[in-house]
Simulated assay, not measured.
Amino acid sequence: MPALPCDTHDPAGPDGVIDAVVDRLGRLDHLVNLIAAPPRPGRLTELDPLALRGALDRHLVMPLAWTRSACRRRLAEHGGSVVNVVTDAVRDASQAAATAALTELTEWLSAELEPRVAVRTVVPSPSTSAAAYRTALTDAVPRLLARPGGEAAHRVHGPVLVLTAPPERPSHAA
């Protein structure tokens, strides 16, 4: 599987990566946005509103940027799927607010793009343990990427682009 370097936080980055995938593989059928949700301690009412920008960027702006690029280059014309996966349990108010925004974005994109492009989001329940959620993802994501109908409905067809950001490190890390 080829690796394509890019800054997953740069809104201009998706176009080049999507173009490279289509140029190298000839097509792009699926986009998976893996969205990390690092904990931010504190209550939402005590949070500096500017601190929400990072969470909204991860949960809303970048998934939209990647979906937009994939649809412009390939998915809108040829069909496929987009799955946004919140990779960690949502355990604080700022994450919950950003995840709610992602859920709403998914509904709008689904209304715009279906039936050619299926758009889904996977978010853990607050009552689900992190281990149980990760286990469930291994089954859920391939099913969401599968094209409906026929015996092979459970199989993923075509190239899948999985996006993940490097883990966030504290500023004092070496």
Rank of each mutant, 00 (worst) to 15 (best):
A3G: 11
P5F: 08
D7T: 03
D10I: 03
D10L: 06
D10T: 07
A12K: 12
D15R: 14
R24H: 09
G26I: 00
R27I: 02
D29S: 05
D29A: 05
L31D: 02
I35W: 00
P38C: 05
R40V: 11
P41T: 06
G42V: 00
R43L: 11
L44A: 08
E46F: 04
E46P: 02
L47H: 08
L47Q: 12
D48S: 04
D48M: 07
A51P: 09
H59T: 03
V61T: 15
L64R: 14
R68H: 12
R68A: 11
S69F: 01
C71T: 04
H78A: 09
V82P: 05
V85T: 02
V86K: 01
D88Y: 03
D92P: 00
A96N: 06
A98T: 03
T106I: 06
W108K: 12
S110V: 05
A111H: 06
E112A: 07
R116D: 08
R116Y: 02
V122M: 03
V123N: 06
T128Q: 13
T128Y: 06
A130T: 10
T135S: 14
A136I: 05
A136R: 07
D139E: 15
P142E: 13
R143L: 13
R147Q: 12
P148F: 12
G149R: 15
A153I: 08
V156W: 07
L163D: 03
H172W: 15
A174N: 09
